[in-house]
Structures are given as structure tokens and as C-alpha cells.
Simulated assay, not measured.
Amino acid sequence: MWLATVSRLDWPPVSSVNISSPELRINQQKKALTDKLDNLKSLGINTVFFQVKPDGTALWPSKILPWSDVLTGNIGQDPGYDPLQFMLDESHKRGIKVHAWFNPYRVSTNTTPRTLAELNQTLSLNPASVYVLHRDWIRTAGDRYVLDPGIPEARDWITNIVAEVVKGYDIDGVQFDDYFYTESPGSALNDNQTFKKYGLAFNSKADWRRHNTQQLIEQVSRTIKQLKPGVEFGVSPAGVWRNRSFDPMGSDTRGAAAYDESFADTRKWVQQGLLDYIAPQLYWPFARDAARYDVLAKWWADVVKPTNTRLYIGVALYKVGEPSKNEPDWMVRGGVPELKKQLDLNESTPQINGTILFRENYLNQPQTQEAVNYLKQRWNQS
């Protein structure tokens, strides 16, 4: 299960941030988390991907990043406890593994004047935000502040953050999500100057960008294995590597492709053994012609087959029970038949080692209850 903290999507509860008493706030946040873990255990979930770096802030006492404002409402304010340590203690007590989930390049979720003011105010803090410490690394893309992935020092900085967590905590794994180069049509990343400085040896800007993402993955993979070989490293990329219309090795799909849009050669990382696992986000039903669930699951199974990389499939719990013109199957009988087909395929394909649901708070929504009851029957045999 993915448990997202960015914008407080799954945790902590929004209401907790407005409590004036620190003690009550801490108690509410801790209870909300243990309630969720009890629920996950009752469902049969054995691993949680806990978002410890949702943007340029941290959910642990970092010497590199300021405290996350999701905890208190203010960037850099000490929440009075260590959420990552609490999460680890409570999960491990329940027999649940925890992978620390990092968003490598995002600095903020928007570029509003208020966000800008909050980032600038961290200058007096120790540590201050990367936004004020390394203004020259910051770009705007997808209407967010992000780090420019083409800057070697920025990649070193991300690697150091991962190393801090791997060294300091008894985590079971590290995961990066699919936000590498993230642009939107009206808000592209302007990395022309960076390209001029570092990229002129490459045939194209796209090749150079893929090289940058590759460098980050290599660095982080190597660092984790040097520090604690038992800590797993995985990536959860967009579900389509490349479409066959662009590349004969690609899948028979017509979806946004990680290789061409995020500049992430995810297939290569598997082939090179840089990852312990890959968790492609296959957020479509069997009937979605442009990106069929079964077509992609089998394509990924073939990719991992000759390697030692394990394959977990990311499944769209957030779509279950939701009306959709293009994907009506999520509505049929509460989404149970579609979910059953996906899990049946995962469990009957030897190369698929498990399923990850996106994301935790959808367990608590009215539209998913039939599916949740089905999962309880299916997974929790105890």
C-alpha cells in the first residue's frame, strides 16, 4: 500500500494541523497512523510505502532538509516527535515492512506567492530549504518548483538525503516514484542553460536527460548497497516504458511513455540490475484499449524474466467505484470483477511478485467498500 503525505493526501489528518496544543496534535497524528496500520494489517497488507520526502521537506529530523509543513502547517517547525521512527516502530510491531518513499526532484507542489514566501522564510532555519540555499538548481515545471535533474550537485544532494535515512533508520526499502522530469504542456522545464553546460556531447537533449536520470538511479543504487545491502531499492514508474509504434521492444499500447516523457529508461534499469524491484503503475482496466492491464503486466513480466529484479504491480484502488466514461469497468459491481481479474493475473504470473495499491485513504471511501470487503476475504486468511 502506498501511503502519501504530500498535501496530506493519506496522512496526517488535515484537522490535526489546526490544533493549538502540540501534545494533542501529536496524539491525534499518532493515533491516526496506528489506526491505519491496524486496518492495513486486518486487510493482509505486508508492506507500506511511506512518503518521507513529499517535496523539499522531510518527515524525519534531517540535517539536510527542513521539517515538512504537512506536520504542523509550517516548513521547518519541529513536530515534537519523529514520524518516520514512529511509523517504523508501529509497523514492525505489526509485522509490516516499511519502504521510505522519496519524491526526488519536487521542491513544492505549487508556485503561489504564499509558497514562495514560506520557502524564503526558511533562510533563517538550519537546515534551510534548498530553494534558498541553491537557488541556481531550482526550475519551474508542471506549475511546481523542482530541481533541475541535469545538475550533478543536485543529484548528489538527493543521494545524500537517501543516505541519511538509510544510515539512520531500520527501513526495509527505498522507493522513488515516477516524478523524474515532470513537465506539463503549459509549464515545461527550462533547462537550456544546463544542457549547454553539461549536454553538448549527446546526440539530443532527450538522450542527455535520460542520461541524467540514469546517473541518479545508479548513484542511489550504489549508495544504498554500500551502506546497507539488505535495504531494497525500487522505482515505481509510469506503466508504459515505450509504445511499440516508437520502439519494437515497446508494449502494444498508446499511453504516455516514461522513456519519452519522464526521460526515464526504466527497462534498462531492470536489465542492468540497478533495482531490487520495479513497481510499474498499471492504473487501467483490461478493457482500456490504449493501455490494457493484461498487455502491460505481461510485457513487464517478460522484461524482468531474465533478471533478478522483482516485479510488483501498482493497481488503481483510487479508480475503483468511480464513474468513468473511458473505463466503465471500475463501476461494475463495485469494481470487484475488474479487481479480481487484475489480482488473478498477478497471482498466476510467476514473474509477478505482488500487488501494491494506490493509495491508503481510498480504503476509507464509500465507493470502494465492496472492493475492500473482497480484498479482506481474499488476502486475510488468518
Score class of each variant (00 low, 15 high):
residue 268 K to N: 09
residue 36 K to T: 15
residue 103 N to C: 04
residue 246 F to R: 15
residue 361 N to D: 08
residue 272 Q to S: 12
residue 148 D to K: 03
residue 323 P to N: 08
residue 341 K to I: 00
residue 178 D to H: 02
residue 278 I to N: 08
residue 119 L to P: 00
residue 129 S to C: 05
residue 275 L to N: 08
residue 190 N to E: 13
residue 210 R to S: 05
residue 192 N to A: 14
residue 111 T to G: 05
residue 92 H to Y: 05
residue 101 W to V: 00
residue 62 S to V: 08
residue 122 T to I: 13
residue 176 F to A: 08
residue 177 D to A: 04
residue 289 D to I: 06
residue 302 D to K: 15
residue 176 F to C: 10
residue 318 Y to S: 14
residue 242 R to D: 13
residue 56 G to Y: 04
residue 306 P to C: 03
residue 295 V to Y: 09
residue 231 V to E: 10
residue 268 K to A: 07
residue 224 I to H: 04
residue 299 W to Q: 02
residue 141 A to L: 09
residue 219 Q to L: 12
residue 381 Q to D: 11
residue 247 D to N: 15
residue 263 F to G: 00
residue 136 D to W: 09
residue 108 S to I: 00
residue 103 N to P: 02
residue 290 A to F: 15
residue 355 T to N: 07
residue 26 I to R: 13
residue 240 V to T: 13
residue 320 V to H: 04
residue 96 I to K: 02
residue 270 V to C: 12
residue 72 T to S: 06
residue 234 G to I: 00
residue 115 T to S: 11
residue 270 V to Y: 07
residue 38 D to W: 10
residue 132 V to C: 10
residue 189 L to S: 01
residue 259 Y to H: 11
residue 11 W to L: 03
residue 35 D to S: 13
residue 332 V to K: 14
residue 373 N to T: 12
residue 247 D to G: 05
residue 184 S to P: 00
residue 92 H to Q: 15
residue 241 W to S: 06
residue 191 D to F: 06
residue 131 Y to F: 15
residue 377 Q to E: 14
residue 122 T to L: 03
residue 339 L to D: 05
residue 221 S to K: 01
residue 186 G to L: 14
residue 83 P to K: 02
residue 11 W to R: 02
residue 103 N to W: 01
residue 272 Q to T: 05
residue 72 T to F: 07
residue 158 I to M: 04
residue 283 Y to N: 08
residue 294 D to W: 05
residue 74 N to G: 04
residue 207 D to M: 09
residue 163 A to I: 10
residue 352 I to Q: 03
residue 330 W to Y: 13
residue 227 L to Y: 05
residue 105 Y to M: 04
residue 86 F to M: 05
residue 273 G to F: 01
residue 73 G to Q: 07
residue 205 K to D: 14
residue 103 N to S: 08
residue 291 A to F: 10
residue 127 P to T: 06
residue 145 Y to R: 01
residue 328 P to H: 02
residue 355 T to P: 01
residue 51 Q to I: 06
residue 299 W to R: 01
residue 50 F to L: 14
residue 251 S to N: 02
residue 13 P to W: 06
residue 197 K to D: 12
residue 308 N to A: 11
residue 2 W to Y: 12
residue 64 I to A: 02
residue 37 L to M: 12
residue 315 V to C: 10
residue 188 A to Q: 14
residue 269 W to C: 05
residue 45 I to D: 00
residue 48 V to W: 04
residue 131 Y to R: 03
residue 318 Y to W: 10
residue 118 E to L: 11
residue 359 R to G: 02
residue 115 T to N: 06
residue 280 P to N: 06
residue 347 E to Y: 14
residue 296 L to V: 00
residue 156 D to G: 11
residue 24 L to D: 15
residue 209 R to T: 03
residue 115 T to K: 11
residue 277 Y to E: 06
residue 68 S to C: 11
residue 137 W to H: 04
residue 351 Q to C: 04
residue 128 A to E: 09
residue 265 D to Q: 08
residue 44 G to N: 09
residue 51 Q to P: 13
residue 271 Q to K: 09
residue 260 D to G: 12
residue 162 V to I: 12
residue 101 W to C: 04
residue 21 S to D: 15
residue 222 R to S: 14
residue 263 F to P: 07
residue 317 L to S: 09
residue 80 G to H: 08
residue 88 L to F: 08
residue 153 E to I: 08
residue 41 K to P: 09
residue 194 T to W: 02
residue 151 I to Q: 07
residue 34 T to P: 11
residue 294 D to R: 00
residue 206 A to F: 02
residue 77 Q to E: 15
residue 169 Y to F: 11
